[in-house]
Write a protein that binds this DNA or RNA. Structure first.
Lengths: 195, 195
DNA sequence: AGAAGCATGTAATGAGTTACATGATTTG
DNA sequence: CAAATCATGTAACTCATTACATGCTTCT
């Protein structure tokens, strides 16, 4: 049911067509919260309309339909937000890969971790630039609504990305520390190799 | 295919029966990395055996079968670890809910965030206790293998949980700051209420 | 002997992916 | 007018969940 609520959430922010919602999904939810493809979005929008949680408010060129959330939809979304499922589904291929690194030898694991840290840093730089470009000076009294869609999510990224980068660096240090212990000798035989 | 690699990873750590692997899955991967139910585990083990990536090495009481990873399985796992899928799947009902909080009014969102922060803190306390009880003094020279299964994962939790707790507190502060701006008056009318 | 938990599975359904299909509009 | 991108969908398949089913072993 999560896809359903993800879409209701996007619709609660503003009405949109399947195409627009798919794009918004990719920009806002796809990376950290929920993943879905365009055809799944279209199908779920049909179901939401059939169940009275959303409705078509406009039909445009080449079959374009704009959906809006209904009162029933808002109520349903609100209930879901207030009553969390007790065993939320978590699937993360990134993290899975990182957790299974022990199956590689230390050198290989080190490379994977370094690449991961670099990718996270790139994401963080991009997000920082995005936030700065959109920011309102907090000193001028006209604070942006902190619940505005995207604001909490951006803050989430700004908190979590440095933590996962730091974890990767910590893991690399653990490995380096340990391999030195085990084989003090092999220091010289192997020059630096960039990734 | 992620479930397949999750199981190969667990088997790379040590051989086990479907039941044992299910339990290990729940303890180690379920919360942050990948989620699966027992029947899916059994089915995937059958497929792994059919594909020659795992093999039954022991049959015990009441149909119990112990599986071990094969060389082909190790090679397959290694390839997956070294060649990440470019668009890893991420699904997280927790995060989804948090991203959609804007659909609640500030007071309700605040409560959800406070409960979330408290739950994260409980997880962190439990993990800290677990790590301390299992820890070897790093000063005595006998460092544990940093790639030992669970070590990297535990470190991940120790890095990420504080960050997500801090994010929740930041989000609450944002909301408080903003609602004060908007309605300086309502300060007195509402006493403290514990969650 | 009965209850709790061990241990493995099947069947039906629902959610998600991949591949395919189609046509309109905008941009160069 | 050709290419890119907008825009929506269907069909077949695989992955995942829910509900059901079965029998063993250990503990009380």
């Amino acid at each position: 049911m999560s896809l359903r609520y993800a879409l209701l959430g996007l619709l609660a922010d503003e009405a949109g067509s399947g195409y627009e919602l798919t794009k918004k999904f990719e920009r806002s939810l796809d990376r950290y919260a929920w993943h879905a493809k365009h055809n799944q979005v279209y199908q779920e929008l049909n179901r939401l309309a059939a169940d009275g949680l959303a409705e078509v408010v406009e039909e445009g060129a080449r079959g374009r339909k704009t959906y809006a959330i209904t009162e029933a939809g808002r109520a349903d979304l609100r209930q879901w937000l207030l009553n969390p499922p007790r065993n939320p589904v978590v699937r993360n291929e990134f993290v899975l890969r990182l957790f299974l690194l022990f199956a590689l030898d230390p050198k290989e694991a080190r490379v994977v971790l370094a690449e991961y840290a670099a990718a996270v840093q790139r994401d963080l730089d991009a997000l920082t630039a995005l936030v700065e470009s959109a920011d309102v000076d907090p000193a001028d009294g006209v604070l942006p609504d902190p619940l505005a869609f995207g604001h909490l999510a951006a803050g989430f990224g700004l908190h979590m990305l440095p933590a996962s980068r730091d974890w990767a660096h910590w893991a690399i240090a653990q490995i380096d520390n340990w391999t030195e212990e085990g084989e003090e000798k092999s220091e010289a035989e192997d020059g630096a190799r960039g990734a």
